[in-house]
Amino acid sequence: MAETMVKSPAIEVSFIDEVCSIPGGEAIRSCIQCGMCTGSCPTASRWDYPPRKAIAMVRAGLRKELLSSNSMWFCASCYTCTVRCPRDIKPADIMHALEVLAIRDGLSTKRSRTPVMYKCFVDSAKGNGRVYELGMMLKFFLRTNPFAALKMAPVGLGLFLHKRLPLKPNRIKGVGELKAILNEAKALGGAK
């Protein structure tokens, strides 16, 4: 930890700036490290660095350590931290922003299957304009652990038997239009 801080002061500055530039991110400068976020988080025990610590790491410039950790991938977006933080910081939004940075920089960890799931979801939504659950699930299990699919087979069967797992994607009429919008967004280079 100490080594990184000494070696790359420039990165230290840019990491906190990077996070401050996201909507609501600037509030992290006023974090008092009270730990309310971690204490409220239903999944904190699984995080390499739980929410309070993750925020301290952003401020300390420990970019690579944090972005390559499993931390933010355990965020279930329950927003309990967000409504309880005494400094009006939005830890959930910060975790989502850290996820974006981790994916963009190719740092997302393989120790969590969530990054792959999210990517499969996004591909599905982009391809059809709506999420095709069966296709997404199959792709996710093939890319991560096909054996886990066997364990989950009863769930899939339960859905299928109760007419909740259509075998065909539902494609919107404007799928071409949607792609054009997203391509233009890509060309614009991504919002900060």
Partner: peptide, 15 residues
């Protein structure tokens, strides 16, 4: 179309 859902916001904010 799909609202984007949480995964989209965790992969690409502008999209």
């Amino acid at each position: 179309n799909c609202c984007g859902s949480t995964p989209f916001g965790s992969v690409d904010k502008l999209a």
